[in-house]
């Protein structure tokens, strides 16, 4: 085990009184340090979102005014006129489709890796993690020709590529979950005469539900956040929020629209997270 206890224990123990004092003092100092660090981190994570929040409501914000000169909802209107709703639906559909394919495939792969180690296992996990090492644009340069030649509908092509990029995450999350849960539970249920439905719904699902939700969420994010694959493989047939953002950001005077579209991009993942947090808490509460 790499966790080595600090050397010279006896020495410290002999100065226990002094150490206790020091510990108390360092705690007070530590709290200030911790609070300051936490505040700095909070600023770090939120600062870039600040201009978005302002631009959303800025009907007029000429340079160098530090704050918008006219507040209003013109940008929301323009963003809607630009197809924000279509893009939102496209993004949502894409995220859900990727999630719907990548999660079950990841579950299966993770079960195979966790419970059936074989001489193939190492190769299988190496392959499933390979997408992490291949930049998406490279895969797309190659696949684009292949997919069009095979007449794969472009939306299906996007889902296919993004699913491959989501699989490392779903497999990894589920692999961790299965490492913690013992297959013995299922086998025991089997021997005790549980039907397959009972094993699935009473034993397997409750055990892996939180991990399943995490995996599905990560896969959703892969679809939700993608730009390049949707652009190049989708060929314009699939309009998503990132595509609208890029197209708006390439024009002048669209900052407010970019801000609206950006905040739209933030809503569903946050809603999902909240939902997961709430149901997770309820589950935990129920069990204890």
């Amino acid at each position: 085990m790499a966790v080595t206890l600090p050397p010279g224990l006896s020495q410290q123990a002999s100065r226990k009184g002094a150490a206790q004092n020091g510990l108390a003092r360092s705690r007070a100092g530590g709290r200030i340090l911790r609070t300051a660090t936490a505040a700095a981190l909070a600023v770090w994570f939120v600062l870039p979102l600040l201009p978005l929040g302002l631009w959303v409501f800025a009907d007029r914000w000429s340079y160098p005014a530090p704050l918008p000169q006219h507040w209003g909802l013109d940008n929301v209107e323009s963003a809607l006129a630009r197809g924000a709703a279509t893009g939102f639906a496209g993004s949502l559909g894409l995220g859900l489709m990727v999630s719907a394919v990548a999660t079950p495939l990841g579950v299966l792969a993770a079960r195979s890796l966790a419970f059936h180690p074989s001489r193939w296992s190492a190769a299988v996990s190496a392959l499933l993690f390979a997408p992490l090492a291949l930049p998406a644009f490279v895969a797309v340069f190659g696949l684009n020709v292949l997919l069009v030649r095979l007449q794969v509908p472009s939306t299906a092509g996007v889902v296919l590529v993004l699913t491959a990029y989501a699989l490392p995450y779903t497999t990894y999350v589920m692999r961790l979950a299965y490492a913690a849960h013992h297959i013995g539970f299922e086998e025991e249920a089997c021997t005790l005469g549980a039907t397959r439905g009972q094993v699935l719904f009473r034993v397997q699902l409750p055990l892996i539900a939180p991990a399943l939700a995490r995996a599905a969420f990560l896969a959703f994010l892969v679809g939700w956040t993608d730009y390049l694959v949707t652009l190049l493989v989708g060929g314009g047939s699939l309009v998503t929020v990132p595509l609208l953002v890029a197209s708006a950001a390439s024009g002048t005077g669209n900052d407010g629209i970019v801000a609206v579209l950006s905040l739209i991009a933030l809503v569903p993942p946050l809603a999902l997270l909240l939902l997961m947090g709430m149901t997770g808490r309820r589950h935990r509460g129920g069990r204890t």
């Binding site: 020709v145 292949l146 030649r149 652009l231 314009g236 309009v239 197209s247």
Partner: peptide, 26 residues
């Protein structure tokens, strides 16, 4: 279909051409 650059659209057409399809998206 909004593109950030007209080249994106031409690019799609060229890819379709490269693949020999006749039922393109654009």
């Amino acid at each position: 279909v909004p593109v950030a650059d007209t080249k994106d659209a031409l690019n799609r057409v060229l890819t379709e051409k490269q693949s020999g399809t006749t039922a393109g998206q654009v």
